[in-house]
Nucleic acid binder design. Structure first.
Length: 417
RNA sequence: GGGGAGGUUCCCGAGUGGUCAAAGGGGGCAGACUGUAAAUCUGUUGGCUACGCCUUCGAAGGUUCAAAUCCUUCUCUCCCCA
């Protein structure tokens, strides 16, 4: 089995391949240039986007050459695959900005620097560069003729949209993505595309187009759709997606997200989202019941460390330990908890509990704060508050701070000056 | 362009003049249980200066003592025909 490809398969990235034997052989023979597409629809990726790039990492490490294709052109249109609604369109400037942010985030797993000769060479390109200047008539004549509408309609992703409606622009997405593959083959000798299994149809279409127009055999490989065993969408929380941008999703929360994955998911996620050797993961997978928490800690630490750096991972780990151990807040790493500063004089005259909570991110209104207090979920510096009329004053202070707690896991810090 | 069906609180979805801040479900939050898990159970889920008041049922007007519910216009979505 080809180097790199075996790792990818072994770690659970493999769902299906257009021609596994041929691809294996090709990858055995030497470096293969391959690509993964990413949509620059936001300024931050979330963890769900990362699956292909972890795979990319393993292949790059094995000496193959990755291309990350930013869908600047295609995202101006919208991909119907798996979406129930049409995407909003973005301006060229927004896309360029987003692409910059994304590259930075991808750099945590893929090396774009090009100064490490022992691994494959990675580049990032934007398909707007070739799609943006397409001539409609020429495109229809040269590319469009290879596509069968009947065939396209038979794809599941389009079928779904047939129910709700599918605009003509979206319908063209497959042509553009196929054209990407052809272009990358011509310009960069790219011979493989990877993507989520929902992209299978588009990938196959690209392969066919490349065969017809360039007479070359290229390959496609898809990853299983990563789901959570509890059926919830991977990488989504109540508050939204688990973003990689620390401004949008703090390293502590990031750590906690992975620390709290379902038992059944730990092993799979360790393989997908960490670089730990398989033997080590196999050991961790043996853990049961309470012991499995160790595996979750490893997962959380490793992934946090990849995305946010070891220092942040360490901080998050310590903060979590402190927050959930018996000593309570004493050992909490305060710097990782969100905070606001209030004036000492204000506290001296006393602030109502509800008012205080409502001013933090813990509660969005006094009503919510009232509920929290009434239901026994509020405590300040580890003193439970159950009286909604309680006035908080300087007697609650500890080191000039108030540590507000909501429920078991959410903290907020009030610094008094 | 013609015809039809619709837009309800975070989401889905009841409600068709007062008993509606609006059923039910989902989700969320909190509590119990626990392993910072899952499952389960309980409570809660517009705002506020809180036994009352204010703002919500696509938007703006109107009818009425009283409208999410009736009328008018506008707007958006979906379906059928062209």
């Amino acid at each position: 089995m080809a180097k790199g490809l075996d790792t990818v398969i072994e770690r659970g990235f493999f769902k299906q391949c257009t021609n596994l034997e041929a691809l294996t052989q090709k990858m055995d023979e030497g470096p293969v240039t391959f690509y993964v597409g990413v949509d620059p629809t936001g300024s931050s990726l979330h963890v769900g986007h990362m699956v292909p790039f972890f795979a990319m990492h393993h292949l790059q490490k094995a000496g193959h050459n990755p291309i990350a294709v930013v869908g600047g052109g295609t995202s101006m249109i919208g991909d119907p695959s798996g979406k129930t609604e049409m995407r909003k369109m973005l301006t060229v400037e927004q896309i360029a900005y987003n692409a910059g942010c994304i590259k930075k985030q991808l750099s945590t797993v893929v090396d774009f620097s090009g100064d490490n000769t022992s691994i494959g060479k990675a580049i990032m390109v934007n398909n707007y560069d070739w799609l943006g200047s397409l001539n409609y008539l020429e495109f229809l004549r040269d590319v469009g003729k290879h596509f069968s509408v009947n065939r396209m309609l038979s794809f599941e992703s389009y079928k779904m949209r047939m129910e709700t409606g599918l605009s003509f622009i979206e319908f063209n997405y497959q042509l553009l993505q196929s054209y990407d593959f052809l272009t990358l083959y011509r310009d960069h000798g790219c011979t493989m595309q990877m993507g989520g299994d929902d992209q299978w149809g588009n990938i196959v279409a690209g392969i066919e187009l490349t065969r017809r127009m360039a007479g070359a055999e290229v390959y496609g490989l898809t990853f299983p759709l990563v789901t959570r065993s509890d059926g919830k969408k991977m990488g989504k929380t109540e508050k939204g997606a688990v973003f990689l941008d620390p401004e949008m999703f703090s390293p502590y929360e990031f750590y906690q997200y992975w620390r709290n994955v379902a038992d059944a998911d730990v092993g799979r996620f360790l393989k997908l989202f960490t670089f730990l050797p398989m033997e080590e993961i196999a050991e961790l997978e043996k853990l049961k019941d309470q012991e499995i928490n160790k595996a979750k800690e490893v997962l959380a630490y490793e992934y946090t460390s990849i995305v946010h750096g070891e220092e942040e991972a360490e901080k998050a780990k310590e903060a979590a330990k402190a927050a959930f151990s018996v000593q309570g807040s004493a050992a909490l790493d305060k710097s990782s908890i969100p905070s606001i500063t209030i004036d000492r004089t204000e506290l001296e005259s006393g602030i109502n509990v509800m008012d205080l909570y409502a001013r933090t991110a813990l509660c969005s209104s006094r009503g919510e704060a009232r509920r929290l207090v009434t239901q026994g979920g509020a405590s300040i510096n580890e003193v439970k508050i159950t009286d909604i009329n309680k006035s908080i004053d300087i007697s609650f202070l500890e080191d000039d701070e108030l540590l507000l707690k909501a429920g078991k896991k959410r903290y907020f810090r009030i610094i008094v000056e």
